[in-house]
């Protein structure tokens, strides 16, 4: 069973090989890029629409949605670009994202009146199957595991 004796050859190539260093957007990173791109597009279009049409109804959630959108876009771009600087940007983005989902999640649970409408990060991303909570953790693990050199 060659699959067992040589597991995840491709993942290794994308991960630790110095010749391929900094290619954080390939291998498992490709899946990560896709998910971040989905959230970047979703959060950006959603917050742009909400801010353009009815910002005064729920200014705080919509502003926070915009912040989330910026973070998702930054991480997506960083993962696609690759390289050491981009890896640091992506790391910072994932930390900001994790902090955001924890802070906004807790805030939305304890002070629901401040949130007449939901954000991506409300209730720890429950409306999005908790992916906003899981994604930064996976992202941090992946970026730690694949140093640029």
């Amino acid at each position: 069973m060659p699959e067992v004796t040589r597991p995840r050859r491709s993942a290794g190539r994308a991960g630790g090989d110095p010749a391929d260093g900094g290619r954080i957007g390939s291998g498992p990173g490709r899946l990560l890029v896709t998910l971040y791109a989905v959230f970047a597009v979703g959060a950006t279009s959603r917050s742009a629409y909400q801010i353009a049409t009815r910002f005064e109804e729920a200014p705080l959630p919509y502003a926070l949605s915009a912040v989330a959108a910026v973070v998702y876009c930054a991480i997506t771009v960083a993962l696609v670009r690759g390289g050491e600087a981009a890896r640091r940007t992506a790391l910072a983005g994932c930390v900001a994202e994790l902090a955001g989902v924890l802070v906004v999640g807790t805030w939305s649970v304890f002070d629901p009146e401040a949130f007449p409408d939901t954000t991506v990060w409300s209730a720890y991303g429950m409306g999005y199957l908790f992916i906003p909570l899981v994604l930064p953790v996976v992202g941090l693990l992946w970026l730690r595991r694949s140093p640029a050199s």
């Binding site: 995840r8 491709s10 993942a11 498992p28």
Partner: peptide
């Protein structure tokens, strides 16, 4: 452009 299992996983996610 990702001719590994992760390309398949990406399509599954999409």
């Amino acid at each position: 452009s990702e001719r590994t299992r992760w390309g398949s996983a990406t399509v599954a996610a999409g």
